[in-house]
Structures are given as C-alpha cells and as structure tokens.
Design a binder for these strands. Sequence first.
RNA 1: CGGGGCGUAGCGCAGCCAGGUUAGCGCGCUUGGUUCGGGACCAAGAGGUCGGUGGUUCGAAUCCACUCGCCCCGACCA
Length: 569
Amino acid sequence: MRWSQHLIPTLKEDPRETQSPSHRLLLRAGYIRQHQAGVYIFLPLGWRVMQRVMTIVREEMDRIGAQELFMPSLTAREFWEESGRWQDFGDDMFRLRDRKGRDLALAPTHEELFAELARHFLRSYRDLPQIWYQIQTKFRDEPRPRSGLLRCREFLMKDSYSFDATWEGLDQSYDLHREAYTRIFQRSGLKFLVIEASSGLMGGSQSEEFMVISPTGEDTLVHCPQCGYAANTEVATAKPALPTPQSPFQKREKVHTPNVRTVEEVTAFLGVGPELLIKSLVYKVGGRTVLVLVRGDYDVNEAKLQRVLGPEARIATPEEVWNQFGVEVGFVGPIGLEVDEVIADELLEGAEGMVCGANESDYHIVGVAVNQDFQVSRFADLRTVRAGDQCPHCGTPLTVENAIEIGHIFKLGTKYSEAMHAYFTDRDGKEKPIIMGSYGIGIGRIMAAAVELYHDEHGIRWPASIAPFDVEIVEVDPGKVRPQAESVYQALQEKQVEVLWDDRAVSPGIKFKDADLVGVPVHVVLGRKVAQGLGEIKIRWTGEKIDVPLADLPDRVQTIVQDLKADVS
RNA sequence: CGGGGCGUAGCGCAGCCAGGUUAGCGCGCUUGGUUCGGGACCAAGAGGUCGGUGGUUCGAAUCCACUCGCCCCGACCA
C-alpha cells in the first residue's frame, strides 16, 4: 500500500488530554480517532490490526469446533426481562424505543439471545454439545470510559457460548476455550497470565481471566512469583499466618480521642500500628444491619463480603449510621452496638489489646479482646490481600499488580437456560436445562494491550502477528531511488508480504520518525546506499540494522518477517 | 454520581485576571522554488460561529448565569 494514497494521519505532537500510552500512540500514529467519550473510529491502520487479531481469533475458535454466527445488536426488552437483567443492568444498558413504543436495548452481551436460540433449536441430547460464537459490537454505557480503547462504550468483542448436556461436558468446553484463548493470546504476541477470577454469585462456578500486567490496567491481581499462584484481588487469598502484634494496651479503657477518626489519625494519635486497630463498618443487607470488622491495616473486600452476606449487601451511608445509632462513622465500634449480626475477618479471631471506636464522638476504647468484650457470630476471609502477604500455597510474599483484562471464561451452569427455559430431552427421556458456558475476548483490548506492553519512546513496536503491515519501505529520496523502491515493493507483494511503502514527497526525517511511530516490525530503508547497490533492513524491535544487496532484499525481508512471526506463534 | 481541569484555525497553544481597532504564535495546509539519512529552507497565500444560549455593557474571546462536550481523580476505608 502506498502511503501517499492512503489515510494515515500521524500527529507530530501528542494529542491533548491523553494519559495512557496506548491511547496516546494509537491516536498519534493514525490508528484511531475519537468520536465521543468511549467511542472510536478505526482508521485504516487500526482496522488492519483489528482484522489481524480477528483472523487469529477465528482460526483458533474454528480449531476447537466453534461455529461463527452473527446476532443482532438491537434486542427486544422481553428477552432481558426473562433473565431479570432488564433491571440488573441498570444504567449500563443503552435503551431506546421504536416508533411503536416498544422498548429495545443495544446488547451489552448476548447470553439471553444465545440461550433463546438454543432453546429453539437444541431439543435433544443428540444436538449437544455445541459451541457458537460471534464477533460483534457490544454497547455498555460505562459510567466512566477511559484510557482510549481499554474502556469503551462501544467495542468489538468475540463472545462464545457452550451448550452441554452434562457437567463433564461443560468442563470440556471450558477447557477447550482455555486452550484456544491461550493460543490466541500467544499468537497475538502478548505476555499474559491466567488467573482465578470472581465467579460472582453463580454458586461456585469456575471462572478465569486472561490478564496483561500493565500499570494502565484497571484490574488488580495478586501473583506469587514462586509457585505461580495468580488471582484477581476480588478472590485472592493469603495465609492468615501473620505475627500477632504486641499490644501496649493490657487493660480495657475508654480514651479521649478528639477529632480522631481515620485509621491514620488513630495510629498517629495513639502511637500504635494499624494492625492493632479494629475497623468497624456498618453494612445493610436488605432490612438487616450487619457490623463488619477488619483489622486496621487491611481493607474489606466487598466481593468476598458479598459472598458471605449476599449480593444486596452494601455499606451504610454516614447518615444512616447517624440516624440509627447516633454515632459518627469514625467512632463506630463493636462494643454495645445494637446490630443484627457481627462478622469479622479471620485475622481478628482471638485478637487482644485492640483499639476500636467507642460509639461516642471523640472516644475510642483500647485493650479490647475479640470474643470477650463482644461476640462475633462468624469469622471469614473478608480482607483484600496486600502485597507482601503470604501465598496461600507456598507462603512466598505475594505481589500485587495492575492488569488489563483481555479475556474471561466462565462456567455459567444453568442460570440462563433455566431462566430462559432452554431445556433438552436427555437420553433418559427427562427434560433438563442445558448447561452453558460463556467466554469473551475484547478485540480492541488486545490491540491496546499490545501497545501498552511494547511501545518505546519513539512509538509502537507491534508483535509481527498483529502489526498492520509486515514491512514498511522508507524511500528516502524519491527523486533518486524510485525505480528501486518500486521493484522492491513489487517483489515483496509477489511474496505475499504485506508492505507499506512510504512514497510521500516529504523529508527523510519525517519518514523515519513516522516509521518508528507507526511501528511496523521491519523497515526497508532505500537511501544513499542504493548508489552502491545496497538497501538497509531495520528491525523495529531491536533497532538492529543490516545492509543487504538490493537483489537479495525481497528474500531476506521475507525470511525475517517469517522468523518474527514464528517467534510469537 | 462527587471533585478537579479544559473547550480560541486541521493539531498544539497564547490572549481572558485589570472588556476597547482588522484575534495572535508554532506546526500543518495551498502555490512556486531550493533541498533529501532522523520532524529542511526561502517567498507568497488560504484558513476562525473564540463550544452553545442568554445576560451585563456604548463595546464581550475576556465579566455573569445557564448549558453542551472532552480529559483526569474518586466513587466502602470508618
């Protein structure tokens, strides 16, 4: 493709108001253009990358026997009512009304439609198993789109759904997806981890996420450098084996702590570490009030808490606490507070000499012993793992890192098949719900994650497998080297190498800078050495430069391109 | 949803606080010429509802109100 005849609008300066590297570079290098918050135009270069990613996805999905189909985005309210998600999605769902007044939604995901399709056509165990997938635009009205392609309101997703007659069958479909996903991300050239993910409230169904570690990522994962244990912080656990702190408070007494509310303030005021504090948090669960206790040096993990208390658990507002107990939230404590239940993190079991709020403004109580001075009905793992906590398997200090979620696989079970009445007749003649799995990959996120992972100060360095082109010809002085450029261009195309030829009438500096910015993995520089019959090959990844006789250029380039692609597949 | 920031030519910005001719600068763009290995040079030129609406004023990019859009931080931490 000749640069001069195509739309590749590179920017000399950084676009205003971009933070993350992928957002900034994809904009600057002419891959995407923003249309609205969280909605992007894919320009020719960007769309080529997306297409290459989609090709990999299709090949690997087809390899596990999945069938591609295509669902509508415009979906009728009734289907969402059947599963209850017309309500559950809330403001995240884009809704609209047609001229007849019917309610519609732009699909944020497609479990309901696939379940509906399955109930219509999959009637017998003989029809199972099946895996169906699509690559489709999803719409989610995110409260805060951010980081360019990483969190969008309109985005391309590969989603697939498995339908099995047995739980063993689901395990197989799930494992097939894990293998396919692993191959897809490997072939895309990404460094990634497969981690344990929150199975939400689906009753212990297995769920794993594919994560790219990156400071730009919005998710947080816990990782053991020793044994490889890795989990989303929503589910990550650590050994409770932590040294019992020595407390200076032997005797229980009320102390005056004027205007001292937060953990930081209390520790500073009393001169003790946060591990001696009990954080007391009031939660509402339906009509019940539950006091949740966690050590001062830990945060409550809401995902874990919801697994104990149920999905409707939410923290009480300061106003609710004041109205119910007449206490400021900073001074709430477990002693003498009239609540329906007190639950505590396991680290507090048997703790003594602790500090907690006195349920009275400007007072705390020190020297408190758990289960002596107050009763706890349940101890559970309710805390968020911190860096340095001990790995639950091998005891090694854990690391905590930000990560980008690029894929998620999930054993759904029968939640949707029951809700949508997707039943099949089994061998024994009985009607049973189809056992489902659901599996997603963010196409744009693969593209953005690759940039986050592999850029340098000059621009993007694409993995060869998903680069928009295999080679870019940098034609330094079109007036002198045009015939040579033309012939290299032709020869490479005949070898099925995808070439971007920078044939613009601009100065060499611009071409070199743009080539680095755009990030095609191999550059062929045709310049002053052409007079000596030489061209130069530059590897974008390493900066390595090789002089090659013009006659050998096409072959050498082809070999290098093949090698680079082999490296990532 | 809460907080902060920003909307002036295609892009990046100045001007606004202390209202006053034709609203500037750099890049880009057009034409002609010279150049050609890391964002060249000379000359001439085009390009603007100052986000929008309303108000104050003799006069508004500038002051006031409302509004739309975008970015960033936060959205359980007691």
